[in-house]
């Protein structure tokens, strides 16, 4: 019997990693956009664009990797709208981000009708990592996944390294913390913000694409269902650190997987309450994270949401 329990848990945690991957990509993306000083509340909109194009291109080309790339680029393209409005035109970033969400949901509803309920003919295949997949518990959970999951591990680690150990990271952190000083020292503030906002969109697209390519390989209207907003909350939970983002993403992936599992098993709790769980827990966690951030005197990048204008004092 204990063996069966063991397998159930591994299946659950393995699903948690997959669900978490749909959050990990966009969370890391938003961390970098925010680190540069740009608040992009359009993650939900960028994710749904990524999800839609990822699905459609996979469906047409029958190649999930090309589809994934298409989803990534769709998210990036959507982010460029936000970048233009908030960096070049110095518009209100909160409203622009909301507009981006409305846009993504409207766009995919408008063009997505004929794809609704279609299932993807292909999906990404699982591949075990030699040696690592043999580690008890850790192996089957983290290293018997698909290539897109492994890519997310690499992205998290590489981005952590870039953030703290490279010139690019120094420029990025300076831009979000004190744009005037960065500019005076020769950092191109506008280019830095454009690039990282775009990068944030690429990763949001990746999260959406992973959803429709691997985690739930079909298309439903509005199927990101608030994952973009959870990702934005996770940025605070992660305290703007890509490795912390992994913890947050898998935690929420775990809750999501758990509630699906419970529904599948037919637990008597109504499904609407189980569905509510991730959002409720996000709310609770964000409250706790906010309090911790305050006590620890960590704060959001100082110029988050503030447009930069060189000639304005």
């Amino acid at each position: 019997m204990s063996g069966a329990h063991h397998i159930v848990l591994i299946v659950l945690f393995s699903a948690a990693v997959q669900s978490g991957t749909t959050l990990l990509y966009p969370t890391i993306g938003e961390i970098f956009a925010e680190r540069s000083g740009i608040l992009n509340l359009g993650v939900e909109g960028m994710m749904i664009m990524g999800a839609f194009f990822g699905f459609v291109v996979t469906y047409i080309t029958r190649n999930p990797y090309i589809g994934f790339l298409a989803g990534v680029l769709a998210g990036g393209a959507a982010a460029l709208i936000h970048a233009f409005v908030s960096i070049t035109l110095r518009g209100n970033q909160v409203v622009s981000g909301l507009a981006l969400t409305i846009f993504g949901l409207g766009f995919t509803n408008f063009y997505g009708q004929r794809w609704i309920n279609l299932r993807s003919p292909v999906t990404v295949s699982q591949m075990s990592v030699p040696l690592l997949s043999k580690i008890p518990y850790i192996g089957p959970i983290f290293f018997k996944q698909d290539a897109l999951v492994y890519t997310s591990y690499i992205v998290a680690i590489v981005m952590w390294f870039i953030l703290y150990k490279t010139k690019v990271g120094v420029h990025l952190r300076a831009t979000g913390q004190n744009a005037r000083a960065a500019d005076a020292m020769g950092v191109n503030v506008y280019a830095t913000r454009y690039w990282w906002t775009f990068f944030g969109g690429l990763l949001a697209g990746a999260g959406g694409a992973y959803l429709t390519i691997a985690y739930a390989p079909f298309w439903l209207d509005g199927m990101t269902a608030g994952r973009g907003w959870i990702a934005i909350a996770l940025v605070i939970f992660a305290m703007w650190d890509p490795l912390n983002a992994m913890v947050g993403a898998y935690l929420f992936g775990g809750i999501d997987a758990l509630q699906l599992q419970l529904q599948a098993v037919g637990v008597t709790i109504p499904s609407s309450l189980l569905n509510m769980l991730p959002y409720l827990l996000t709310l609770i966690v964000i409250i706790i994270a906010t309090l911790i951030v305050r006590v620890k005197h960590i704060s959001a990048p100082k110029e988050l949401g503030i447009p930069y204008n060189r000639e304005e004092k």
Partner: peptide, 10 residues
């Protein structure tokens, strides 16, 4: 900060 001739890795 801002130096172009620095290597990618510090």
């Amino acid at each position: 900060l801002g130096l172009k001739d620095q290597s990618f890795f510090i």
